[in-house]
Each structure stands twice: as structure tokens, then as C-alpha cells.
């Protein structure tokens, strides 16, 4: 069984591709851009298409599949009732699947489960990375504000830190907000 992946996010596509290969599926193509989608889709044979839901390329894909004899339709509802949950988790994870009529639901379920798991894992990783970057940037600002206090007020590092903390508590602000205020004022006066 052949699967085509369409995802603008190369990292996520690579992760999902590997996971599908590990589960014994064939990958007929991995497509990242709208341009490639328009150029290549017609030549590619596949049974299932997995596509990132946050990409507007879904509309392009729907037109391309409508031109094929065996039109692949989006999977919105599976016949068995308890599978509604599966489709809902796919939407939540941000992945959508297209299959041609008569494709075995059991096999589709297995592929969807792999895709949902990888999308979730990758999205969680991105969130984590984002929050780490954010924290790092905050720490840098606090260090900078500490440096300003040390220079202008002659504080040692510990006093500068405690001063920042106290200011934040008094004003009901976060330390990062106080630090940014100090940096802004220092830049204004410089």
C-alpha cells in the first residue's frame, strides 16, 4: 500500500515518513509546496494521501483529485460509530486523509493512528522548543537589566537581582516585564 504525504513542515514530514516506513508502508511521494503539488500529483500512484490541515494546499489537492477517474475523497466519517473519535483526534492533531472508494477501513485506521501519533508528537516538540526559546530570551533580558542596575547603581549581582524581584512584586508584574521596562528606559536615556 502506497501513501503520499503533503506537509509544508519538512521536519514533521520526515518524522511521519520514517514512522510509516517502520510500520511497513510504502511512501510514494513527500510534497512540501503548492508548486510541487500542482506539478507532481498527477504522476504519483497512491492509495492514501495524508495532508497537513493547516495548509491551504488542501483546496488545490481537492481539485486535482476531482480530475482523476478514481476520485480520492476526504475521510470525514468512517462507517463504524466508535471511529468518529478517531477522525476527531485527527482534526485536533491537524491531519486529514484522502482515500479512493472501497479502501479498507481497517487499513486506513492503522495509517491514521500512526499519523495522529506523529503529528501530536511533533507539535508537542515544537511547542516545547518555542517555550524554551521564549524562556531563554527572557533570561537574557533579565541578565541585561541586572547589568544595567549594576552599572548605574553600583549594585552587586545579588542585590541587582533582589531589586528586580522586589520591583516586580511591588508592581504586581512579572520579572521579565520589569526587566524590559528598565532596558527601555536605559535605551531612552542613552
Amino acid at each position: 500500500m502506497k501513501v503520499m504525504l503533503i506537509d509544508e513542515d519538512r521536519g514533521r514530514a520526515a518524522l511521519l515518513k520514517q514512522a510509516l516506513l517502520d510500520s511497513g508502508y510504502q511512501i510514494s511521494a513527500v510534497i512540501h509546496t503548492n508548486e510541487d503539488l500542482l506539478k507532481k500529483t498527477f504522476e504519483i500512484e497512491c492509495d492514501v494521501i495524508l495532508i497537513d490541515m493547516e495548509s491551504p494546499n488542501r483546496d488545490t489537492l481537492e481539485y486535482l483529485t476531482s480530475l482523476k477517474k478514481e476520485q480520492a475523497k476526504p475521510v470525514v466519517i468512517l462507517a463504524e460509530n466508535d471511529d468518529r473519535q478517531l477522525i476527531e483526534s485527527a482534526v485536533k492533531a491537524g491531519v486529514s486523509a484522502y482515500v479512493v472508494d472501497g479502501f479498507s477501513q481497517k487499513r486506513l485506521k492503522a495509517i491514521l493512528e500512526v499519523a495522529i501519533a506523529r503529528f501530536r508528537e511533533y507539535n508537542a516538540m515544537c511547542k516545547e522548543l518555542e517555550s524554551t526559546k521564549h524562556k531563554l530570551a527572557e533570561r537574557k533580558s533579565i541578565e541585561k537589566a541586572k547589568g544595567i542596575l549594576m552599572k548605574h547603581k553600583g549594585f552587586d549581582e545579588e542585590t541587582a537581582y533582589q531589586t528586580l524581584r522586589r520591583m516586580a512584586m511591588d508592581k504586581h508584574l512579572k520579572m521579565i516585564d520589569v526587566a524590559e521596562q528598565i532596558i527601555n528606559v536605559a535605551e531612552l536615556l542613552a
Binding site: M53, E54, S55, P56, N57, R58, D59, L61, E62, P74, V76, I77, I87, E88, V91, S96
Partner: peptide, 15 residues
Amino acid sequence: EASWANIRDKVSLGA
């Protein structure tokens, strides 16, 4: 939403 296909599917599903 990113696509008309998303609009249709999410309305269909009740999302």
C-alpha cells in the same frame, strides 16, 4: 481556517 476543505469538514464533524 486555512482552506475551504477545512471549513466543510469541520462543519460536517461539528468542530
